[in-house]
Write a protein that binds this DNA or RNA. Structure first.
Length: 886
RNA sequence: GCGAGCGUGGCGGAAUUGGCAGACGCGCUGGAUUUAGGAUCCAGUGGACACAGUCCGUGUGGGUUCGAGUCCCUCCGCUCGCACCA
């Protein structure tokens, strides 16, 4: 027998111990050996492929971008999912637990540019390495369902969906404003633009530009996406609320202001039409189509300069809180249709072209932003709403009055309340044909064209005679050309646009020479429907099998990071509804229960002037000497999200090498409940490693008689320690079953098992013992089963040491024996005026009077009751009795 | 500014429906074992005091209740998200 581990450190000195262990057939806990053995067994027996029997259970974790290496965030995400998968499999469900690769997109393209290695070659290598790491962590995936979005057999279905959605008018072409770098001559993602309008490759002067793009009409589902949030009762409240805000339904009115000296009108959207008699100017977004047309000759120069200036600044920065409110008068004026008043038309940086109508009516008396702008440019402020309590607004106002109130100086609407006025004034606008009550949404359509190489080609052919013609279904997929045929530099627009062999084609309708679309799709398209592809990953006649969808969908549990709260999960929901309306599905929502796990944080050391320094180096030094290597100032310590740039990351593979996969898994599950942030603490890991060793030691200490002993069927004949052990075992089983199955609190489940092990040690199970072998065997087997979702390799080892049949991973989760859970006495608390005065062991069947007698007989209770009158007795069965005395 | 969430020992956390605050783990203290260290095992560990017990204690101040970490209100602090949204 191989002896390894800690006892090997000083082989010469430990020979006595060594021999004793040899004779007792004891090994110390060696996770590396145990884990590799069981991983091989699982692999050989395809232990986690579904067998088609039992209630279906679909557990899905957000699939990763295959960077090649797992990080602690992945470990946490996938371990949580794995507990669900393994637990529900043991509960007898037919578990679907697949994994795949979100393998198109910008990171891979950038890596390809840098390394000059084709992503087609790099991606499978990364996938292979990451998959090995996942197997080393003991994750129970059904690898026969693996998918990778970079493969044409996956992305052809993106193209197929595109064509179907185009037929349904859920895809259309539009102009959109994007970040543009003149240096690279290309479009940039927000993340590629740094703060000061510098691009990621160092060019200054990033600006914006309007380009044509394809968009999904997600807004036509806005109402349903909002309403169905109510169905997501098993989603975190936080995520639902974020989605609600993002969809952003607001009720208001659309009002037309005719331009003076022109037949054009400025259309504004407002939620406060009740304030319109106080409107003293109108403001357009710089990108508003009317901007160019209406500027008068003397103002044209100023307007053009202003538009140019704002365009050079990224929209986020321009509209940030505290950014100065800039604007310029166009020279034009417009007529307020309610008052007939003529007001000036301005252009300002804070008005957004793509929200509402891109134009606002400004009421400085009742909107703080308008108030500041009017004050700065000396525009009149005209109050028309006064507080409902009849008080007057201060004159002059020092800030806007933004509450609802009562209208004054508002013609026939004077005297109405704001709420009444909004209704009546919208109706007035419709009657007179210059506006209407309307609903406005924050949600905008999903533009998905990307001027990139490493994405799904958009299957469209542009013909001079027939316009944009979709590629016929039988010609799909449009495959990405080989990497070595293109020149990938990150400059000069869409890479496919430089490859005539790709874009030169014939019109599917008339056969004339035509040009392919050279843009590719956003990778959010891939992840919008991947959950359905897992159902039938190899099907080549449809994106997924509809029968399988009926069986498996919706996904029962979806686990991932809260950073995807809005975009991914909204697109995911949208696509599900779109698939339903294509007749492919009958569900409205993709996921029943969503679990968003917290970040993995760790201490990070930083110097205010020299940035971050590696944690490992700093921890190696004594506490007082952790100073900046450059300036020798003491370094600050803060708990921050693990990241490369902060040098505070922990490599999961080195953890597994040192402690094993089981300890690593136990640690991430024990340190915090799934939805909370987890703070990395190297000392705590030791505690979990100790727990694993203690379990192993108990199993090792049992002799051969245990392996074949007959299991107890009831409490009959069990006394003393035997009965105590069996009761503790079944109580733990009931607790773990509830914590995992109902509450999804894995940390408390592990704590319960720790308590059980402590009980085992109290009864000397770790030293061998004279206890009933059947009780000991049951303890071993049941512990192995409870442990199986958390520390699956150790669980298999314990199962096998206890003479369990087959794999514990495929065993049936045990039921606690009700007889073992039964208690004859229970602990009852006695309070006097709400303060704890005694704890009593009372028979479970004792009634109120009996308990009253026992309680009053207690010395300490009697002491506090002496000379007092009991005014009231509160009796909570099974918990406490409280005497209210005076 | 808006929205959401969170404040419990030296630390991570537990307390399921309003009913024993601090389970479990880390750390620390003491003991056993050991030539020693490590490892392991056992015991203790919220604070104070007149120490078999009592009093105080879940960010602050108030309220509801026989009883509040839990429910309501006020203030303070922290974290995350965001879009000056008309």
């Amino acid at each position: 027998m191989v002896i390894r581990g800690r006892s090997d450190r000083l082989p010469g000195r430990t020979s006595v111990c060594y021999l004793r262990r040899m004779t007792n057939q004891h090994r110390s806990y060696d996770p590396q050996d145990i884990e590799k053995r069981w991983q091989a067994k699982w692999r050989e027996s395809k232990a986690f492929a579904g067998d088609g029997s039992g209630e279906p259970f679909y557990i899905l974790e957000m699939f990763p971008y295959p960077s090649g290496n797992l990080h602690m965030g992945h470990v946490r995400n996938y371990t949580i999912g794995d507990v669900f998968a393994r637990f529900h499999k043991m509960q007898g469900r037919d578990v679907l637990h697949p994994m795949g690769w979100d393998s198109l997109g910008l990171p891979a393209e950038n890596q390809a540019i840098k390394e000059k290695i084709a992503p087609q070659i790099r991606t499978p290598k990364n996938i292979k390495q990451m998959k090995e790491q996942m197997e080393r962590l003991g994750l129970a995936y059904d690898w026969s369902r693996e998918i990778a979005t970079y493969r044409p057999d996956y992305y052809r279905w993106n193209q197929w969906f595109f064509v179907k959605l185009l037929e349904k008018d859920l895809v259309y072409r539009r102009q959109n404003t994007v970040n543009w770098c003149p240096g690279c001559n290309t479009v940039l993602a927000n993340e590629q633009v740094l703060d000061d309008a510098t691009c990621w490759r160092g060019h200054k002067g990033v600006t914006t530009r309007s380009i044509p793009e394809w968009a999904f009409r997600i807004t036509s589902y806005a109402e349903e996406l909002l309403a169905d949030l109510d169905k997501l009762s098993a989603w975190p409240e936080r995520i639902v609320s974020q989605q609600r805000h993002w969809i952003g339904k607001s009720f208001g009115a659309r009002v037309e202001f005719p331009l003076q000296g022109s037949d054009k009108k400025v259309e504004v959207f407002t939620t406060r039409v009740d304030t319109i008699f106080g409107c003293t100017y109108v403001v357009l977004a710089p990108e508003h189509p009317l901007t160019d047309l209406i500027a008068t000759d003397e103002q044209r120069g100023a307007v053009e300069a202003f538009v140019e200036k704002t365009r050079a600044i990224d929209a986020i920065e321009r509209t940030a809180e505290g950014a100065p409110k800039e604007g310029v008068f166009t020279g034009a004026t417009a007529k307020n249709p309610y008052t007939g008043e003529v007001v000036p038309v301005w252009i300002a940086n804070f008005v957004l072209a793509d929200y509402g109508t891109g134009a606002v009516m400004s009421v400085p008396a009742h909107d703080q932003r308008d108030f500041e702008f009017a004050s700065k440019f000396d525009i009149p402020i005209k109050p028309v709403i006064h507080p409902s309590d009849g008080t007057d607004l201060p004159s002059p106002q020092c800030e806007a009055f933004t509450d609802d109130g009562v209208l004054r100086d508002s013609g026939e609407f004077s005297g109405l309340t704001s709420a009444d006025a909004r209704e009546k004034m919208s109706a007035f606008a419709s009657t007179n044909g210059f506006g209407e009550a309307t609903v406005n949404w924050h949600l905008r359509d999903w533009g998905f064209s990307r001027q990139r190489y490493w994405g799904t080609p958009i299957p469209i052919i542009y013909c001079d005679d027939h316009g944009a013609v979709p590629v016929p279904e039988e010609d799909l997929p449009v495959v990405l050309p080989d990497f070595d045929t293109i020149e990938l530099t990150g400059e000069g627009g869409a890479p496919l646009g430089k490859l005539p062999s790709f874009y030169q084609t014939k019109c599917p309708t008339c056969g004339k020479t035509a040009r392919r679309e050279v843009d590719t799709m956003d990778t959010f398209v891939d992840s919008a429907w991947y959950f359905a592809r897992f159902l039938s990953p190899e099907l080549d006649t449809a994106p997924f099998d509809q029968e399988a969808a009926k069986r498996w969908l919706p996904v029962d549990v979806y686990v991932g990071g809260p950073e995807h709260a809005v975009m991914h999960l909204l697109y995911f929901r949208f696509w599900t509804k779109a698939m339903r309306d294509l007749g492919l599905l009958s569900i409205d929502e993709p996921v029943t229960r969503l679990i968003t796990q917290g970040m993995v944080n760790a201490a990070a050391f930083s110097c205010p002037s020299h940035g971050y320094f590696p944690v490992s180096e700093m921890l190696a030094k004594p506490e007082g000497e952790r100073n900046c290597p450059k300036c020798n100032e003491p370094l600050g310590v803060a708990i921050e999200k693990m990241s490369k740039s902060k040098y505070n990351g922990v490599d999961p593979m080195s953890l597994i090498e040192r402690y094993g996969a089981d300890t690593t898994r136990l640690y991430v599950l024990f340190a915090a409940p799934p939805e909370k942030d987890l703070e990395w603490n190297p000392d705590s890991v030791e505690g979990l490693s100790r727990f694993a060793s203690r379990i192993f030691r108990v199993a090792q200490a049992q002799g051969d008689e245990v392996r074949t002993a007959e299991l107890p069927k009831s409490m009959a004949g069990l006394k003393g320690a035997d009965a105590e052990i069996r009761r503790a075992l079944h109580r733990t089983l009931a607790k773990v079953t509830h914590e995992v199955g109902v509450r999804n609190h894995f940390n408390t489940a592990i704590a319960a098992m720790m308590e059980l092990i402590n009980t085992f040690y109290e009864r000397k199970l770790h030293e061998g013992s004279a206890l009933n072998p059947g009780v000991r065997r049951e303890a071993l087997l049941t512990l192995a089963q409870m442990l199986a979702p958390f520390a699956p390799h150790l669980a298999e080892e314990i199962w096998s040491l206890g003479g369990g049949e087959g794999l514990v991973a495929q065993s049936r989760w045990p039921e606690p024996d009700p007889e073992a859970l039964e208690r004859r006495t229970l602990n009852l608390v006695v309070q006097i005026n709400g303060k704890l005065r005694a704890q009593l062991e009372v028979p479970v069947d004792a009634d109120e009077d009996a308990i009253d007698a026992i309680a009053q007989a207690d010395e300490n209770v009697a002491k506090f009751l002496e000379g007092k009158i009991i005014r009231k007795r509160v009796f909570v069965p099974g918990r406490l009795v409280n005497y209210v005395v005076g």
